[in-house]
Amino acid sequence: MEAYSEKVMEHFRNPRNVGEIENPDGIGHVGNPLCGDIMELYIKVEDNTIVDAKFKTFGCGAAIATSSMVTELVKGKSIDEALAISNKAVAEALGGLPPIKMHCSVLAEQALKSAIEDYIEKEKKTLT
């Protein structure tokens, strides 16, 4: 396998934002144990801005690094800005991923989208 970039290894060694948020405004849960990657992403939203994000991940080095990076990228972003974060942006921020690990960045994007969708759903419910 192709080696990981320094940035990936750095995020793997010192993952940012590990853990859960109590009473989160949105939770994203993606992946399944069969394929070896599961991500849970928690967001806290204030005035349409993501003020905090945390994650828990079962997976390889790339899965952990992309989870860490996506939580970093999303903090301080508006919901619309966050929705625009693509898997490529996550991979690029990590200095690239080996081709067979690109699916980890896809998973990170999906985890984020799923957390935001959960937030939007909850918002709708509180409004109605």
């Binding site: 396998m1 990981y4 290894m9 793997f12 060694r13 394929c35 070896g36 990657d37 079962f58 997976g59 390889c60 080095g61 790339a62 899965a63 952990i64 067979i100 699916h103």
Partner: peptide
């Protein structure tokens, strides 16, 4: 249980230990 092989391998490597895993994540087939 509850942990993935490649991340264990990478962590062991950081401690100077070379080992191996049967995890998909270390193969090209997934």
């Amino acid at each position: 249980e509850f942990v993935e092989g490649e991340s264990m391998l990478l962590s062991l490597d950081m401690e100077g230990i070379a080992a191996s895993t049967g995890s998909a994540c270390s193969s090209s087939s997934l």
